[in-house]
């Protein structure tokens, strides 16, 4: 199929066929990371800028590894070292970057919609690596790749997402992506963390009790409690959160017998997920990390790889 997008701003913009195509491509790229020589010349001579306004270790590293395994040159621009601290606007920084002719710009930004602004200003492909509380499309894709790999399908899969839905771009990308792929998404969390408009915005069912969302689920995805994101008191404290919403062995038993446990990381062990569940046999958290590299390789290839030649 032809992939007609310059950028990957969100899963919102993609059709089910396009998502399927990216996941299929990612399957192929996963194998490269298993080789003794983990490098192919596919993107030799291409330049990828890692432009991170927000600190992020794992996403930035994952993109960096993905680009390097495809032989692209990568440059990092972090909040503390770039012109951002000098008060330069995103638009100005973008135009300056553009003048250096990168092929792709990977943007992580604390403002929802920042990649959309950037994409309108530059000719390079923009990949959203997480914008505010909006989307984190590559995370959504790697999550779907992981589910599909283990469960063999996405359609009809019952996926429970538990936690701070309101402030989670991971939840949004998963709700959108899984909705398009025909999965049944259920969400739960403290009511203060369930945004107004949720049920109208997505094909997701909202449950006030996490047990109801988890019951019979094929996938249980726990979200990180982001204390720093909460600008108002959203819950009394970690103790009660852990007691009411944390995933422990008992709650996990409500899910389907072969249910898998996912977490976008970094985990707060003992808060949203108990150590025995995180490290238990149903946890696929490290598979997610492996798949993250594959999905990002696939995307870079699709967006800036030019002619098809794997």
């Amino acid at each position: 199929m032809e992939f007609r997008h310059k950028d990957l701003l969100g899963l919102e913009e993609l059709t089910a066929e396009e998502i399927e195509y990216i996941l299929d491509q990612a399957e192929g790229f996963r194998e490269i990371s298993e080789r003794p020589i983990k490098k192919v010349p596919t993107l030799r001579g291409k330049t990828v800028v890692l432009f991170f306004y927000e600190p992020s270790t794992r996403t930035r590293t994952s993109f960096d590894v993905a680009a390097k395994r495809l032989s692209a040159d990568t440059f990092s621009l972090a909040g503390s070292t770039s012109s951002i601290v000098k008060g330069e606007t995103l638009a100005d920084t973008a135009r300056n970057l553009e003048a250096m002719k990168p092929d792709a710009i990977i943007l992580r930004h604390s403002s929802s919609g920042a990649p959309h602004l950037l994409a309108g200003l530059v000719r390079s492909s923009v990949i959203n690596a997480g914008d505010g509380t909006h989307e984190h499309p590559t995370q959504g894709l790697l999550d779907m790749l992981t589910m599909r790999q283990i469960k063999g399908r996405l359609e009809g899969l019952k996926v429970a997402i538990i936690g701070d839905i309101a402030h989670s771009r991971v939840a949004r990308s998963n709700m959108i992506g899984l909705g398009k792929m025909g999965a049944e998404v259920r969400v739960s969390g403290p009511p203060t963390m369930l945004p107004i408009g949720l049920e109208e915005a997505y094909e997701a069912r909202v449950f006030l009790r996490p047990e109801e969302a988890i019951e019979g689920a094929d996938v249980v995805m726990m979200l990180r409690v982001q204390m720093e994101r909460a600008k108002a008191p959203l819950f009394p404290g970690l103790r009660e959160y852990s007691r009411l919403y944390g995933l422990n062995a008992k709650r996990l038993n409500l899910a389907a017998p072969d249910a898998i446990v996912m977490h976008p990381g970094p985990m707060n062990r003992g808060v949203e997920i108990s150590p025995e569940v995180a490290d238990g046999p149903r946890s696929v958290i490290l598979d997610q990390v492996t798949n993250g590299v594959a999905v990002r390789m696939a995307l870079l290839y699709i967006l800036i790889g030019g002619e098809r030649e794997a």
């Binding site: 914008d131 505010g132 909006h134 408009g197 109208e200 915005a201 997505y202």
Partner: peptide, 21 residues
Amino acid sequence: SAHGVMNEGRVSCRLGLAGIP
């Protein structure tokens, strides 16, 4: 209104923008 930047509802939820009820 706090740090809201648009009307709170379906669209703010989808755009991931803080809502003003």
